[in-house]
């Protein structure tokens, strides 16, 4: 009987890109340590464990303790990177709040397996609330990079940033959005494709789908701008206002509940600066279910045609506004 093949190490996933980047970054950053709750194989952290075994700390299936321990390790001058699935980060939100954010500890919380991208494990495992929960914690920076290249850059930016960070990776093989040469800055959105009728603002796996949606719209003579908003907090309010000014309609797209995540952050920024019609692509306040990520994205309206349809709704409101 042959050994079962593990599906954890998906070569071009965001989690793998994170794990490889972290292992490399640790070579020149002695204070970097990594904390795991028995899923290093799934979070990409196995690369770090292999390269830096003495700096890899195991906590077992006990995320609340692990999260607060990270605060304590940071208090001694280390830079702890805590990793688990996004849904288990939710389990330790209060530890992240008190022992990390309130105490202003330099801890990086890296969450793999967010959203419907989790796939067949089903609704219990698909975190749709993490961006909202962590965004609401004072002083917490929240990131959701778009592709493996950006993930590596964002990992470095997070590690070198002085303060608590929550960062989403991803389980499934990720589409490539960037070639080499991309510059990642915390707090800065990035215009991937220019356009003047409507702006599609996306994060994570939805960025590639938004680019595809822009092509669909172009075929109908609609010019869509695409923004990769990899920093959910602090949101790039200037860029959001500029997009409202220059295109007059906005669609947000995220693998997350439409309440409180990227859509919420963009809408909050808009009403403060320059309101315009906004349509939200994401989970409409429902839980997910088992299925392959692509099947789920289609069923729950996260794919390019659904983003394009939302863009047309926003355009219609803009014209009739």
């Amino acid at each position: 009987m042959s050994a079962p093949s593990l599906i954890a190490a998906s070569g071009d996933s965001l989690r793998e890109a994170f794990g490889k980047a972290l292992a490399t970054l640790a070579e020149t950053r002695e204070r970097l340590v990594a904390l795991d709750a028995d899923i290093a194989g799934g979070t990409g952290l196995h690369h770090f464990r292999k390269a830096h075994p003495s700096r890899f700390f195991q906590f077992g299936i006990a995320e609340q303790n692990m999260m607060a321990v990270a605060g304590g390790m940071a208090a001694t001058g280390l830079i702890p990177v805590v990793t688990t699935f996004a849904v288990f980060c939710l389990r330790a939100v209060e530890q992240a709040r008190l022992s990390i954010a309130y105490a202003k500890r330099n801890v990086k919380i890296v969450a793999s397996h967010p959203g419907l991208d989790v796939g067949p494990d089903g609704g219990s495992a698909q975190a749709l609330e993490d961006l909202a929960a962590f965004r609401a914690i004072p002083g917490m920076t929240v990131l959701s990079p778009a592709d493996p290249h950006e993930m590596a850059l964002a990992t470095q930016a997070a590690v070198d940033f002085d303060g608590p960070v929550y960062m989403r990776t991803g389980r499934s093989p990720a589409c490539s959005v960037y070639a080499n040469g991309h510059v990642f800055r915390i707090g800065k959105g990035h215009i991937l494709r220019d356009g003047h009728d409507v702006t599609l603002i996306a994060c994570g796996v939805e960025v590639a789908r938004a680019l595809e949606a822009a092509k669909l719209l172009a075929a109908e003579n609609i010019s869509a701008r695409v923004v990769n908003m990899a920093t959910i907090k602090p949101i790039d309010a200037d860029l959001v206002a500029r997009c409202a000014e220059e295109t007059g309609a906005i669609v947000t797209a995220e693998d997350h509940n439409t309440i409180g995540g990227l859509g919420g952050a963009v809408a909050e920024a808009l009403v403060r600066a320059r309101p315009c019609p906004v349509e939200f692509v994401g989970l409409e306040d429902v839980f997910g279910e088992s299925g392959e990520p692509d099947e789920l994205a289609e069923k729950y309206r996260l794919t390019a045609p659904h983003i394009a349809a939302a863009a047309k709704r926003a355009l219609k409101r803009k014209r009739h506004g």
Binding site: V33, R55, A68, G72, M73, A74, T76, L78, E94, Q95
Partner: peptide
């Protein structure tokens, strides 16, 4: 939480 943080301090200092 303070207990867990103290554990983290003990781990960090020993490390």
């Amino acid at each position: 939480q303070g207990f867990s943080v103290a554990i983290g301090m003990a781990l960090g200092l020993r490390h």
